[in-house]
């Protein structure tokens, strides 16, 4: 039987050679049709090798046929290479490009994600039906895939699933749930304030201790001028005057700092220039 098969394929190859030589000169569409029909097996074989990647086999055969047609168009019989040697990479290339066009290199295809989900679902169903955890073979049988595919999905499948950053995470029994988003980093707005605080601290230290206490009570504890007057045992008018003077002192201290900063900034810039 093998002899018969190989005999047939030898005849096929002889015939293909004739057809290819004829097509190279005449470009007769009928000859092309026969060549395509003759090599459909090759396309099916190659497409089959890619069929476990989550794409429909028929789609892959279609794409592979495009590759085959390209190969027939471009094949030069004069070069002396076998047609299959020339056609195989062309067909595979076309199939691979199909995957790439679908964004395969970046994300896992939807079908595969769905497959992983269906493995999980089938496992659950069979567990309750059988009263025990099903074997990969049993899951594979039910889903009509190979046990290896099931094992791979079980082992690696989880990392293929997409997660929403809004999806809620379990927070034990407390009702408050948190989402992944809560754990993502962002710029700390308080960082900017650190700088302001430092500047303010320096400005504060430019005040005498009584004025410092006054400013603290007024602006950090939000006390009224008369309250502060009682604490410091001075008149409210005096508080008002001291406050105005202190603010002016601090303002000057701050603007001096800023000037110093700008000047050193300029110096740094000018140093860069030759």
């Amino acid at each position: 039987m093998t002899e018969e098969k190989s005999g047939e394929s030898r005849w096929d190859r002889e015939r293909a050679r004739q057809l290819l030589a004829s097509y190279a000169t005449d470009r007769d569409p009928k000859v092309k049709d026969e060549l395509v029909a003759q090599h459909l097996n090759l396309v099916r074989y190659l497409a089959g090798k890619f069929s476990n990647r989550g794409e429909n086999l028929e789609d892959l055969v279609q794409v592979g046929c495009l590759g085959l047609i390209k190969a027939i168009e471009r094949f030069d019989p004069e070069r002396g290479t076998e047609f299959t040697t020339y056609a195989t990479p062309t067909i595979v290339g076309e199939i691979k490009r199909h995957f790439r066009d679908k964004g395969w290199a970046i994300k896992v295809p939807r079908r595969l994600q769905e497959f992983n989900a269906s493995v999980a679902k089938t496992t659950e169903e069979l567990t309750s039906a059988l009263g025990r955890v099903p074997s990969p073979d049993e899951i594979a049988k039910k889903l009509e895939v190979s046990p290896e595919d099931v094992l791979e999905a079980q082992e690696l499948g989880q990392s293929y699933n997409l997660l929403s950053i809004d999806s809620e995470l379990d927070a034990d029994d407390s009702r408050k749930t948190s989402s992944l988003l809560d754990y993502l980093g962002r710029d700390d707005f308080q960082l900017e304030q650190v700088e302001d605080r430092l500047a303010l601290h320096r400005a504060f230290s430019s005040l005498p201790s009584r004025e410092r206490l006054l400013m603290y009570l007024r602006f950090f504890e939000n006390r009224s001028q008369s309250e502060v007057a009682k604490v410091l045992n001075i008149s409210q008018m005096h508080v008002s005057r001291l406050q105005a003077r202190s603010l002016e002192t601090m303002r000057q201290a701050l603007s001096q700092q800023r000037n110093r900063g700008e000047r050193s900034g300029k110096r740094r810039k000018s140093r860069k220039q030759p």
């Binding site: 290896e148 791979e152 082992e155």
Partner: peptide
Amino acid sequence: LGIVRLACAGIAHRLGLDHE
């Protein structure tokens, strides 16, 4: 051969290779 394929998948996954 299934075991070889599984090992390939496992290693590729460990190396962080693209699915393709």
